[in-house]
Amino acid sequence: MLSILILEDNLEQQRKIREIVNNRILINVTPRQYDAEIALATGDPNAVIAYLQAHQDKIYLAFLDIDLKTTLDGIDVAE
């Protein structure tokens, strides 16, 4: 299972990313069904880090906002 993480502090942009990802999972034109889910969508970089530490055995695709206006940004989370 591919776990998808979304780190975006703008709620409208977060909603749009979730919508795009969910539609892509549901509307799949390939012969195989996607084995993917949005595991976490948040504006809190610490929540993403905590989730990653608690679920180290998973495979991830992450959408990370670079400018979060907090002490941590998407680059920090990626590191």
Score class of each variant (00 low, 15 high):
residue 13 Q to P: 01
residue 11 L to F: 11
residue 25 I to C: 06
residue 25 I to P: 00
residue 14 Q to V: 02
residue 30 T to D: 10
residue 64 L to D: 02
residue 35 D to W: 04
residue 24 R to I: 12
residue 21 V to P: 00
residue 22 N to I: 11
residue 52 L to E: 07
residue 24 R to P: 00
residue 7 L to M: 03
residue 63 F to M: 10
residue 47 A to G: 01
residue 39 A to R: 04
residue 23 N to S: 12
residue 5 L to H: 01
residue 67 D to S: 15
residue 8 E to F: 02
residue 62 A to Y: 03
residue 27 I to L: 14
residue 9 D to H: 11
residue 6 I to F: 01
residue 56 Q to L: 13
residue 28 N to L: 13
residue 7 L to G: 00
residue 32 R to Q: 12
residue 49 I to S: 08
residue 69 K to C: 03
residue 8 E to H: 05
residue 33 Q to D: 12
residue 29 V to L: 15
residue 20 I to F: 12
residue 21 V to E: 06
residue 46 N to T: 07
residue 58 K to G: 01
residue 8 E to V: 06
residue 68 L to R: 02
residue 40 L to P: 00
residue 20 I to L: 15
residue 47 A to D: 04
residue 1 M to P: 04
residue 6 I to L: 08
residue 36 A to R: 06
residue 72 L to E: 05
residue 26 L to K: 14
residue 7 L to A: 01
residue 50 A to E: 12
residue 53 Q to K: 15
residue 1 M to C: 07
residue 44 D to M: 06
residue 6 I to C: 02
residue 70 T to E: 14
residue 56 Q to P: 08
residue 26 L to R: 13
residue 60 Y to S: 04
residue 51 Y to K: 06
residue 49 I to E: 09
residue 41 A to K: 05
residue 79 E to I: 08
residue 59 I to Q: 15
residue 35 D to N: 10
residue 23 N to C: 12
residue 48 V to K: 01
residue 57 D to N: 15
residue 16 K to E: 12
residue 37 E to Y: 13
residue 70 T to W: 04
residue 8 E to L: 07
residue 42 T to W: 05
residue 65 D to I: 13
residue 53 Q to V: 06
residue 59 I to L: 14
residue 6 I to K: 01
residue 3 S to E: 12
residue 7 L to S: 00
residue 19 E to Q: 15
residue 58 K to S: 10
residue 7 L to Q: 01
residue 9 D to I: 05
residue 20 I to H: 07
residue 4 I to K: 01
residue 27 I to P: 02
residue 11 L to D: 11
residue 37 E to D: 12
residue 9 D to F: 02
residue 22 N to F: 11
residue 58 K to E: 09
residue 60 Y to Q: 08
residue 2 L to S: 08
residue 52 L to I: 10
residue 44 D to G: 03
residue 69 K to S: 11
residue 67 D to C: 12
residue 42 T to I: 07
residue 39 A to V: 04
residue 65 D to G: 08
residue 78 A to R: 15
residue 50 A to K: 10
residue 39 A to E: 10
residue 31 P to S: 13
residue 42 T to S: 12
residue 68 L to G: 00
residue 61 L to W: 05
residue 10 N to G: 03
residue 78 A to L: 15
residue 35 D to L: 13
residue 12 E to M: 14
residue 58 K to M: 11
residue 17 I to C: 03
residue 20 I to D: 09
residue 65 D to S: 13
residue 78 A to V: 06
residue 27 I to K: 14
